[in-house]
Design a protein around this nucleic acid. Sequence first.
DNA 1: TAGTTTACAGAAACCCGTTTCGGTAGAGTT
DNA 2: AACTCTACCGAAACGGGTTTCTGTAAACTA
Lengths: 340, 340
Amino acid sequence: MSATPSSEQTNTRATLKQVAQLADVSIATASKALNDRVHVRASTRQRVLDAAAQLRFSPNEQARSLSMGQTGTVGLITGDLEGRFSLPILMGAEDAFGTGRMSVFLCDARGDSIREQYHLDALLRRNVDGIIVVGALTNARKPIGRDLPVPVVYAYAPSEDPNDVSVVPNDVAAGADAVRYLLDQGRTRIAHISGVSNYTAAIERSQGVTAALQERGLTLLDDMTHFGSWSEQWGRSATERLIERHPDLDGIVCGNDQISRGALDALQRAGWNVPSRVALLGFDNWEVLTTGSRPQLSSVDLNFELVGREAASLLFGMMSGTVEPGIRRIDSRIVTRESA
Amino acid sequence: MSATPSSEQTNTRATLKQVAQLADVSIATASKALNDRVHVRASTRQRVLDAAAQLRFSPNEQARSLSMGQTGTVGLITGDLEGRFSLPILMGAEDAFGTGRMSVFLCDARGDSIREQYHLDALLRRNVDGIIVVGALTNARKPIGRDLPVPVVYAYAPSEDPNDVSVVPNDVAAGADAVRYLLDQGRTRIAHISGVSNYTAAIERSQGVTAALQERGLTLLDDMTHFGSWSEQWGRSATERLIERHPDLDGIVCGNDQISRGALDALQRAGWNVPSRVALLGFDNWEVLTTGSRPQLSSVDLNFELVGREAASLLFGMMSGTVEPGIRRIDSRIVTRESA
DNA sequence: TAGTTTACAGAAACCCGTTTCGGTAGAGTT
DNA sequence: AACTCTACCGAAACGGGTTTCTGTAAACTA
C-alpha cells in the first residue's frame, strides 16, 4: 500500500540518454546496441543492455516513430454501436498483427458521417499506418475519403469504389449452404424468413437460398423470401402465418438468430416439435440467443474474426506493397446445435 | 474513379515548413500564427492561415505531442470479450473527452494477465495520458501495476487497492430498487433467482434485495437467493421449482436478462400469466433479450455509459490535478416494459 | 615498417513541431 | 535628433529517438 494517493504521478520513464550515460557510451551507440545494429562490440552492447534493464528502459514510441516514419498504430472506425461486428474484427486484427506490436484506435462514429470525418481527421493527424472501416450493415458504402495518405480496408460493409479493398462475409454462399444443410437432412418444404428487404445481406442470402433449392429442382414455400425486420416479433408472426398455410412445412431458414427465436416460440406454441417436425437454422451464431433456448439453435456463423483477420492482413500487405483491389468474401460455417 | 490502384499511397501530408515557405515566414511564426499566440501581426497571421488552408495542413500530432509532453490519447484495457461493458464505457469516454479531441486505444486482454501486461507496456511506450481498466465482472481485481507514470481508473471491476480510483455500478442499491419497484406494485411473495454465487454483483444485489424486503417486514420466498448460473436454462429450472412449491408466488427478481427469459418461459409453460400473476424484473437491460420476448421484459439498467463517462471524467481530473481515491458507485435506473 | 583495412564509437543531422530569446524596425517621447 | 518602447519576426534549442557520416585505433597486408 503506497503512502501517496494514487492520483499523484511523480515517477517518470527512463530515457535513452540516461541509459547511454549509465553505460558510458554515446546516445548513438546505445541506440544501435538496443536495436541490434552492426558495428557494436559485444561487450559494449552488453553494457548498454544491462544499463537499460537496470533503468527499466523502454523506448518512447512517439520519438521513435517520428524518425522512423511509422507509428505502429491503426485506426478502426466503426458504425456498429453494439460491437457485434467490430469487436471480433478488432480481435482478428490484434491477432493478425501480434499482440502489442500494433495498437488500435477504436473510433465509434455511431452512424454519423460528421463524427466519422472528425475521427478520420484525428487518425490522420496521429499518423496511423492504416485504417479499417467497419460498417453496421453489409450494404456498400461511400468511400471514407479520396486520396488518403494511408491505406484503407473496408470490412463488413464494402466500399462502393471497386478500386478500394473490402472484406465481407460471403452471404450468397452462406444462404446456399444453409439450404443444402437442411436438404441433406431430408427437408424439402422449406421457407425463408428474413429481415429488412433492402439489406444487402438479406438479399444475397435469399439469392443463395433460392439457387441452392433450384439445384435440386425445388422452390421456397410461397415461392418467395418473407422479408420483414430482424426481430423476434417478426419471426413469430411470419411463422404463425406459415403454420396456418403450410401443414407440410419441415424447415425454416431464418435471417438471423432473433428471427429464429421468434420462429421457435411460434412453433412450440402451435405444438410443432423442433427439430423433429420442423428444422430451424438461423444466421449470426449469437451465443446469447442460440444457447439459451430449448432446443438450442443451430446457426450459420459468418466468421467475423476471420473477416477481421483478413482485413488486418490486407492492411498489412498494403502498408508494405501493393494489394489487388476488390471485394474478398469470407466463407461461413454452420454451427450445429439442436434445432437442425 | 482514380487511375492508380487505391493501395498505392503516393500523396503525403503537408508539413509546417511548407506552410511557412508558402506564406514566406519562418517556421516559428507559422506555428505561432496557427496556435493563436501573441506577437503576430494580423495580416501575417492571415497569410499563414491561407497557406495552411491551401495545403490542407493539419499538424503532425506525433511531433506536437513530443514537444508538448501530452499525447491526447488514452488506453482502454478490457477483459470483456463481448463488449457488453467496454463498448458503452468507450462511448462514455468519447463523450466525456469530446469527439476527436482524445483518441482511445482499445486493448482486449481476453482475461489473460500476460496479454494484459503486454498491452500495458505498449500503452506506456506510446505515452498515453491515462488508462482505464475495464473488468469482465464486478469482482475486485489486482491493480494492473504499481507506481505507473500515468493515472489509472478502474471501471466496472474495482481495484483491490483502496488508494486507486474505481467506478462501479451500485449493485446494492440496484437490488433494493428492484424489490421496491415490485413492492410498490403490491407484490409481496417475491423470489430472487441470481447467477454465480461468487460474483460480487450477485452477492451485493442479493444484499440489497434482502434489505429492501426487511424494510417492510418481508422476506424472500425460501428465505434465500437462489444462486446458479447466468443462463436461461438456470432461470427455467429454478422457476420450475418455484412454481411447484409456491403457488402464491407473485414476483421474481432475476439476476440478469437471460435468467429472466428463462423464468418467463417456465411461467408461460405452466400457464402462469406474466405480469398479471407474476411480475418479472431482470438486470442489465440488454435490448436484444428484453425487447424480443412477449411480453417484453422490464429490466434494471446499470447505466454503463454513465460509468464510462464518470471514469473518463475522473481520469481527466487525475491528469490535471488530484482526485480523491476510492470507489464511486453509479446509480441504476429501471426500464419499464411489460413484464413488471 | 609503412600503408591499408576493418571494427568500433561518437558527433551531428534529421523527423516535425513548440517555445524561448535575441534582434530589428518603426512609433512614441522629450 | 537622440533615446526608449513596443510590436513583430526568426534563429535556435528542445523533445527522444534513428541514422549517416566522420574519426580513430587496432589488425592486417606487403
